[in-house]
């Protein structure tokens, strides 16, 4: 189950690989091969149904910023971290997107179920 969730969307797989810090790129190849069917399904599904597409309001809306004030205060040096990026980063988070399912695994599963019945 866990693997199919990841595999259903090529994006998740690339995220998984990029944060897979225990191994070099070499170990990623068999993982990709073992998931190839799921990745293929996810890619075709996305290309035909485009349910992950939406207007990127956060990037495409014309904006202007003025009177910028910024503060940067050094706190501490963290050493021996295992993650390649900040663990609870939320700088790419989007709250105002309207497409709810967003082409995720649940939607693809529901579509397969509809066909199987």
């Amino acid at each position: 189950m866990f693997f199919s969730v990841l595999a259903a969307d090529p994006l998740y797989v690339s995220l998984l690989l990029s944060s897979n810090d225990d191994s070099s790129g070499l170990a990623a190849i068999p993982l990709l091969l073992c998931l190839s069917g799921f990745i293929y399904f996810g890619a075709v599904y996305a290309r035909y149904r485009n349910s992950d597409k939406r207007h990127l309001h956060e990037e495409e809306t014309p904006v202007r910023i003025e009177n910028l004030q910024q503060h940067n205060q050094f706190v501490i040096r963290l050493t021996g971290l295992r993650n390649s990026s900040m663990q609870d980063r939320n700088d790419q988070q989007v709250e105002g997107a309207l497409n709810e399912s967003g082409g995720g695994f649940a939607e693809q599963l529901a579509n397969v179920k509809d066909w199987v019945k």
């Binding site: 810090d21 225990d22 191994s23 207007h55 309001h57 809306t61 014309p62 904006v63 202007r64 910023i65 003025e66 009177n67 910028l68 004030q69 910024q70 503060h71 940067n72 205060q73 050094f74 706190v75 501490i76 040096r77 963290l78 050493t79 021996g80 971290l81 295992r82 993650n83 390649s84 900040m86 309207l98």
Partner: peptide, 27 residues
Amino acid sequence: DKTTYYDADLYDISRDFDLLIDDLTLE
């Protein structure tokens, strides 16, 4: 030991600005 490690500097940051948004479009 076959594991990759990272060292990073942690900062407290803040940003303050006037935000002028043009033509936000809603259904």
